[in-house]
Amino acid sequence: MLKINNLHVKLEEENKQILNGVDLEVAGGEVHAIMGPNGSGKSTLSYVLSGRGGYVVTEGSAVLDGHDLLALEPEERAAAGLFLAFQYPVEIPGVGNLTFLRTAVNAQRKARGEEELSATDFLKEVRARAKTLKIDAEMLKRPVNVGFSGGEKKRNEILQMAMLAPKMCILDETDSGLDVDAMKLVADGVNALRDKGRGFLVITHYQRLLDHIKPDVVHIMAAGRIVKSGGPDLALEVEHNGYADILAEVA
């Protein structure tokens, strides 16, 4: 599904290398977790995959289901099935949440040559999905993420993910800033989407999210590379001992 090969990335504005050869492969149906110290390049990886400006790929490749991601515009990557749940979802004053969702859903359908969703079908689906995420009608009407609490923003990300039904979902610290109940809601939302045709890359600092979303593989990222990969136990090890031991071991 997603194959990242020897990815090197530097900043556009300054000569600073952030990713130093990331190798990663996520197959359909799998959940991979990425853990790692702050500043190790996790968010950068998610941004580069989704096409945010400001970064230069100096080497390597990223392919999603045969699509050379790095050659595509952000919207084309989305239409190809990539989704990023942002660590910091963006507030967009003046654009209603529903309008935004509907525009996104139909833009992707159009790009894939599918028919647009009718207003009624769309509303029906949104309402049902919003309900399971405890997003009320009021929140759907408000401008995108404006005045949302941290937890509301993250649930809104999961709602978008559910509506867009991507093939490859990247979640960047979706658990940060959530209380236990909110995290459960988010995790349930993710688990409901687990499917053999869909891959997940879950970036997190904490084991507790992985208690709810059980990963198949856990990667440790440090200084812009995946330095160690293993099973779910690796996350427990991090939880108990921190990163120091692992970093020392691979150094």
Binding site: E73, P74, E75, A78, I92, A107, Q160
Partner: peptide
Amino acid sequence: EDALFYLRSRGVPE
């Protein structure tokens, strides 16, 4: 730019 990227990342053309 952040809002623009957010929208594009959801599939809305530039």
